[in-house]
């Protein structure tokens, strides 16, 4: 974006949801210290997600070419149900725990505005296609980790993390399918409307 001064079909809605995901998940940087790595990575996640949102909102060139009439997914349709579910389905009814659970549920669906935008914009830019592919792959690798830990560690069970991570990965499934086919047939990636 910085280099070409254009948003490449990246959905601002999704970027804002990700910023909210990390803001609600990493509240513990104020309460307890786990390790230097832990706090540094959290600050990187927060810094990068908020700077993308800031850049897309503030930078005059990016903002002008960002197609806001296409990226119209209403956040609240995702935020409200996730908040409600986090209030009902959590492991401990404390503020931190509910916020953390909310961030997991929200992360599972945060990609939806981006996928909708990709369906609407006919020609998907390579950069954006790769970006979404890697976001999905990151999640898929977590599932491999969970399987390994379930098999090797006694009582390693995290239903909330597993279910939201699984749903998140499933949302990418059709994108992976079309991405693979466009790569195999060496065609431009297009998602059916």
């Amino acid at each position: 974006m910085r280099h070409q001064n254009q948003p490449y079909g990246v959905s601002l809605k999704t970027q804002e949801l990700y910023a909210l995901v990390f803001a609600t998940r990493y509240l513990d940087i104020f309460t307890d210290y786990i390790s230097l790595y832990n706090i540094v990575m959290k600050l990187i996640y927060l810094g990068s997600s908020f700077s993308i949102v800031w850049y897309m909102r503030r930078h005059k060139l990016v903002r002008r070419s960002y197609d806001k009439e296409q990226d119209t997914f209403r956040h609240l349709f995702l935020i409200v149900p996730c908040l409600f579910l986090a209030l009902v389905l959590n492991e401990r009814f404390t503020f931190m725990e509910v916020m953390w659970t909310f961030s997991l549920y929200l992360e599972a669906v945060a990609i939806l505005p981006q996928l909708v935008l990709l369906q609407r914009t006919r020609n998907i830019d390579n950069l954006t296609g790769q970006y979404v592919l890697l976001l999905g792959a990151y999640r898929a690798f977590y599932i491999l980790n969970w399987i390994y830990r379930y098999l090797t560690e006694v009582h390693y069970v995290h239903w909330i993390t597993w279910m939201s991570g699984l749903i998140q990965t499933l949302l990418y499934a059709d994108f992976f399918y079309y991405y693979f086919h466009s790569w195999k047939n060496n065609e431009k990636l297009q998602l059916p409307a």
């Binding site: 998940r25 513990d28 786990i34 832990n38 990575m41 959290k42 996640y45 492991e91 401990r92 931190m96 725990e97 953390w100 659970t101 977590y142 995290h158 993390t161």
Partner: peptide, 10 residues
């Protein structure tokens, strides 16, 4: 819960 999970999963 977030306590035991946050240690190994960002």
């Amino acid at each position: 819960s977030s306590a035991d999970n946050i240690k190994d999963e960002l």
